[in-house]
Design a binder for these strands. Structure first.
Length: 506
RNA sequence: CGCGGGGUGGAGCAGCCCGGUAGCUCGCGAGGCUCAUAACCUCGAGGUCGGUGGUUCAAAUCCACCCCCCGCAACCA
């Protein structure tokens, strides 16, 4: 396994609404990756958090009748408690209102300004006083603001601009020479297409007359910085604060496709200007499409993660998200499909296998493990699980979680066939065949143990429960290289079965 | 106009990057088993892999063109 550490980030979620399906998906992926690599001995550090400044938040707060800080305190807390109740792992939760982050942003802005990459200029555009924002001509409907139905005024405003274009060539070279830098490849091609056009300058300030909810520029107190300089730097500021800057070059950013441009264009040029190394990889995923006709009324257009947890269990929800979407592509979210997978793959596949094995183990041997005595079908079973591990690990390294799970389920299918083919329940009727029955069940207990280990990053609760049912200590979960046959000492006793995934009747 | 993604048995999808028996889940038909969460196993029906042309001994997979569908186009993962 790689010696290089892993610094994994989710986006720093914009704190203008409570956590929904999109946030949850990215965070599930992050959690699964952290668990996966930690189990394999890789040093890792996970970051998530909330992006709390800006227009939209000031407006949302005003609408809610509270101060911006009170508003973001509430939303940020909602994210944190949601992730906690969902059982997600991460090492740091950053808020862009953290004092250390604010200080870090000001420091970087001052440095880039001193270096000459930030200049003051006049910006001319179509401004709607009702919306308090500029419009592009193509956004207007018949020349008027779509909300207020009035023609915007052309006004000039002075602002600070980051000379992003100065780094365009270096950025292009970086994208061209490193094909793994932005994955999947479709998104890299999209970035290359963007870089065929001049990227120009990036407006990075807002006058306080228009927006006060932001970080004041260190070189002009009439302005606050706007959005990206603030938000993107939150990937770095927690490391600086904690003395972990050595992790920075190992940064892998998980994002959805809507924020590709800021991450693939603004961010690397900002890093170049700041004299920091580039992040290691940008991992871009698609959207969950919602077909409202297929959603139950109680769910509606917004899928709340804790509702899903309450209804189906967190592991089933995680399984569905990871199994259904091919990372990078869009997928459709449907509760019906979730239930189908829960029943077919979790309950009938994994759950039922555990149930039948533990039941026989209980019935024939009162839970006591019997000695192994490998025969050809047993060897084939071992090969199936060894193959599953190899494929699963290769697919996770490729972010192909759907294929990783599929690979493990092929082994589980093999195990279910193995039960029918070796028919321990038939052999058990013949006292002379009892040792063979015991050996078969031992093989199956090993299969379940390996399953618990391999599935842990994706279904952490299930892994723990299955390990406990096998009568093993939780630490065993991390011992991935324990040889087949080495998990159960002589006289070991397994627990009576219990349903890991009750079927959802439809 | 541009960019991206799709078009694979009844439904939903994977496979395509690294050409060589078309796979998964659901649904349907028949049978088996009885350890198990009416679960499990076997067999079967059902596909000219959007179209045309090309490369190749060989193409769902590579290339070209075309036809449909869906997103994006300065701040929703």
């Amino acid at each position: 396994m790689p010696a290089e550490p892993l610094y994994l980030t989710t986006p720093i979620y914009y704190a203008n609404a409570e956590p929904h399906l999109g946030h949850t998906y990215t965070t599930v992926v992050g959690d699964a990756l952290l668990r996966f690599w930690q189990a394999r001995g890789r040093r890792s550090f996970g970051l998530t958090g909330t992006d709390e400044h800006g227009d939209k938040i000031a407006q949302a707060a005003a609408k809610a009748g509270v101060e911006p800080k009170a508003y973001v305190d509430r939303i940020s807390a909602a994210f944190r408690t949601t992730w906690q109740e969902a059982g997600f792992h991460y090492d740091h939760f950053v808020r862009t209102t953290d004092a250390s982050h604010v200080a870090f942003v000001r420091k970087i802005l001052a440095e880039i300004h001193a270096k000459g990459d930030i200049h003051f200029d006049s910006y001319r555009g179509l401004y709607c006083y009702g919306c308090e924002r500029f419009y592009q001509e193509r956004e207007l409907v018949n020349g008027v603001c779509p909300d207020h139905r009035v023609a915007p005024s052309e006004i000039a405003e002075e602002n600070y601009f980051f000379r992003m274009g100065a780094y365009q060539e270096r950025l292009l070279a970086a994208v061209e020479t490193n094909p793994e830098w932005i994955v999947p490849d479709g998104y890299r091609r999209e970035v290359l297409a963007l870089l065929r056009e001049p990227i120009g300058d990036l407006c990075i300030s807002r006058p306080k007359s228009r927006l006060t909810w932001g970080i004041e520029l260190p070189f002009d107190d009439r302005y606050v910085t706007y959005v990206w300089f603030d938000a993107l730097l939150s990937y770095v500021s927690p490391l600086a604060e904690r003395g972990l800057m050595d992790l920075w070059p190992a940064a892998h950013h998980l994002i959805a496709k809507d924020i590709l441009k800021p991450h693939a264009i603004y961010w690397p040029t900002m890093l170049m200007a700041a004299g920091l190394p580039l992040y290691r990889q940008l991992c871009v995923h698609g959207y969950w499409q919602m077909d409202e006709a297929k959603m139950s009324k109680s769910v509606g257009a917004v899928v709340r993660p804790l509702d899903m947890k309450a209804r189906y269990g967190m592991d089933a929800f995680r399984y569905y998200l990871l199994r259904e979407m091919a990372y990078g592509q869009d997928a459709e979210f449907s509760e019906g499909a979730l239930v189908t997978r829960l029943n077919a793959e979790l309950a009938n596949g994994l759950g039922n296998l555990a149930s039948r094995v533990l039941a026989m183990q209980q019935r024939y041997f009162e839970g006591i493990l019997q000695p192994l005595a490998p025969e050809p079908p047993d060897e084939a079973l071992r090969v199936a699980f060894a193959t599953a591990r190899r494929q699963l690990e290769a697919h996770v390294a490729d972010l192909a979680f759907h294929r990783a799970l599929e690979a493990l389920w092929r082994a589980l299918d093999h195990a279910n066939k193995y039960v029918v083919e070796t028919a321990p329940f038939t052999l058990a009727k013949d006292p002379a065949r009892r040792p063979r029955v015991g050996a078969i069940l031992h093989e199956l207990c090993e299969a379940l143990r390996v399953t618990a280990q391999l599935v842990e990053p994706f279904l952490p609760e299930t892994a723990v429960r299955l390990t406990a049912l096998l009568g093993l200590p939780a630490e065993r979960l991390a011992e991935l290289d324990l040889p087949w046959g080495g998990a159960f000492p002589s006289g070991h006793r397994t627990a009576p079965p219990e349903a890991l995934f009750p079927r959802i009747e439809t």
